Amino acid sequence: LLPSFEIGAWTEDDVYCWVQQLVRKGDSSAEMSVYASLFKENNITGKRLLLLEEEDLKDMGIVSKGHIIHFKSAIEKLTHDYIN
């Protein structure tokens, strides 16, 4: 489970856990499981996660359009939940 809904306070480890949970919950393929490490390697914290754009995801090595859409949708939901 994630430490809190205060996404802005999430550490790199918290984001890593979130990506792992996202991959487990989704209908995503096994190749998506490597993405948790990509987020950690790129020092993505909660604040940075909320700022990620499609180009950032591509720069991190996420090239599948479907996977990018999956992440963007999940990040938008997080942003919405965080604001409300």
Rank of each mutant, 00 (worst) to 15 (best):
L1F: 09
L1Y: 14
L1T: 12
L1Q: 15
L1M: 15
L1S: 12
L2C: 14
L2W: 09
L2S: 14
L2H: 14
L2Y: 14
P3I: 03
P3W: 04
P3Y: 08
P3L: 05
P3D: 15
S4Q: 11
S4C: 08
F5H: 15
F5C: 14
F5W: 15
E6S: 09
E6Q: 03
E6W: 04
E6P: 09
I7E: 04
I7H: 09
I7R: 02
G8P: 13
G8S: 14
G8Y: 09
A9P: 04
A9Q: 15
A9C: 12
W10A: 04
W10T: 02
W10E: 02
W10N: 02
W10V: 01
W10H: 03
W10P: 07
T11G: 08
T11I: 02
T11W: 02
T11P: 00
T11S: 11
D13V: 02
D13K: 05
D13C: 00
D13Q: 09
D14Q: 06
D14K: 00
D14A: 02
D14E: 07
D14W: 01
V15I: 03
V15K: 03
V15D: 05
V15F: 05
Y16C: 10
Y16P: 00
Y16W: 03
Y16Q: 10
Y16H: 07
Y16I: 08
C17W: 10
C17M: 12
C17L: 12
C17E: 12
C17K: 07
C17Q: 12
W18F: 06
W18I: 00
W18T: 04
W18L: 02
W18E: 03
W18V: 00
W18P: 01
V19I: 07
V19Y: 02
V19Q: 07
V19C: 03
V19S: 03
V19K: 13
Q20L: 08
Q20P: 00
Q20R: 10
Q20N: 10
Q20T: 10
Q20D: 09
Q21M: 05
Q21A: 09
Q21Y: 03
Q21E: 13
Q21H: 11
Q21G: 11
Q21C: 03
Q21S: 13
Q21K: 08
Q21N: 13
Q21D: 12
L22P: 03
L22G: 06
L22I: 14
L22F: 09
L22M: 11
V23I: 12
R24H: 12
R24Q: 13
R24L: 14
R24M: 09
K25L: 07
K25D: 13
K25H: 13
K25N: 12
G26C: 13
G26R: 08
D27L: 11
D27M: 11
D27R: 06
D27G: 12
D27N: 13
D27K: 14
S28E: 13
S28W: 13
S28A: 12
S28L: 14
S28T: 13
S28Y: 09
S28C: 13
S29K: 10
S29C: 10
S29Y: 13
S29R: 09
A30S: 12
A30M: 11
A30N: 08
A30W: 09
A30C: 09
A30F: 10
A30P: 11
A30I: 07
E31Y: 04
E31D: 14
E31S: 07
E31P: 05
E31V: 07
M32I: 10
M32G: 06
M32C: 09
M32V: 05
S33K: 10
S33C: 07
S33W: 08
S33Y: 06
S33N: 11
S33A: 12
S33L: 10
Y35W: 06
Y35F: 05
Y35G: 01
Y35I: 09
Y35R: 02
Y35M: 01
A36I: 02
A36H: 00
A36P: 15
A36V: 05
A36Q: 03
S37T: 10
S37A: 08
L38A: 14
L38V: 06
L38G: 00
L38F: 07
L38R: 06
F39G: 01
F39C: 00
K40G: 02
K40P: 03
E41I: 08
E41H: 12
E41S: 10
E41K: 13
N42H: 15
N43W: 06
N43D: 02
N43A: 08
N43G: 13
I44G: 01
I44A: 06
I44Q: 04
T45S: 07
T45K: 06
T45C: 07
T45R: 00
T45A: 02
T45Y: 08
G46K: 05
G46R: 04
G46H: 06
R48A: 07
R48Q: 10
R48T: 02
R48G: 03
L49M: 06
L49N: 03
L49D: 05
L51G: 12
L51K: 13
L51F: 06
L51I: 07
L51M: 14
L51Y: 08
L51Q: 15
L52C: 07
L52G: 04
L52Y: 02
L52F: 03
E53M: 02
E53D: 15
E53K: 09
E53C: 14
E53L: 03
E53R: 11
E53A: 08
E54F: 05
E54K: 04
E54Q: 07
E55F: 02
E55H: 09
E55K: 14
E55M: 06
E55T: 09
D56T: 01
D56H: 01
D56N: 06
D56G: 03
D56M: 04
L57P: 04
L57E: 04
K58L: 05
K58W: 09
K58V: 08
K58A: 10
K58F: 06
D59T: 12
D59L: 09
D59R: 13
M60L: 10
M60Y: 04
M60C: 03
M60Q: 02
G61K: 02
G61A: 02
G61W: 05
G61Q: 04
G61P: 05
G61D: 03
G61S: 02
I62K: 00
I62E: 09
I62T: 01
I62D: 01
I62Q: 07
I62M: 05
I62W: 00
I62L: 02
V63C: 11
V63I: 10
V63Q: 13
V63M: 15
V63Y: 08
V63K: 15
V63H: 13
S64E: 14
S64K: 13
S64Y: 02
K65L: 07
K65Y: 09
K65V: 10
K65Q: 12
K65T: 11
G66V: 11
G66I: 10
G66E: 15
H67D: 12
H67Y: 06
H67C: 07
H67E: 06
I68R: 13
I68L: 11
I68Q: 07
I68E: 02
I68A: 09
I68M: 05
I69A: 14
I69W: 08
I69T: 13
I69E: 15
H70D: 09
H70W: 14
F71I: 13
F71C: 03
F71S: 04
F71D: 02
F71A: 08
F71T: 03
F71Q: 01
K72Y: 07
K72N: 04
S73G: 08
S73Q: 15
S73M: 07
A74Y: 10
A74L: 06
A74H: 09
A74G: 05
A74V: 04
I75Y: 03
I75C: 00
I75M: 03
I75N: 01
E76T: 08
E76Q: 11
E76A: 10
E76V: 04
K77D: 08
K77E: 15
K77I: 09
K77R: 09
K77H: 09
K77P: 00
L78V: 02
L78R: 01
L78H: 05
T79I: 12
T79N: 14
T79R: 15
T79E: 12
T79F: 08
H80K: 13
H80F: 11
H80A: 13
H80G: 10
H80V: 10
H80C: 12
H80W: 09
H80I: 09
D81E: 12
D81F: 11
D81H: 08
D81I: 06
D81C: 11
D81W: 06
D81P: 08
D81Y: 07
Y82E: 09
Y82L: 05
Y82Q: 12
Y82C: 10
I83L: 13
I83K: 15
I83T: 15
I83F: 12
N84Q: 15
N84K: 11
N84E: 11
N84A: 13
N84R: 12
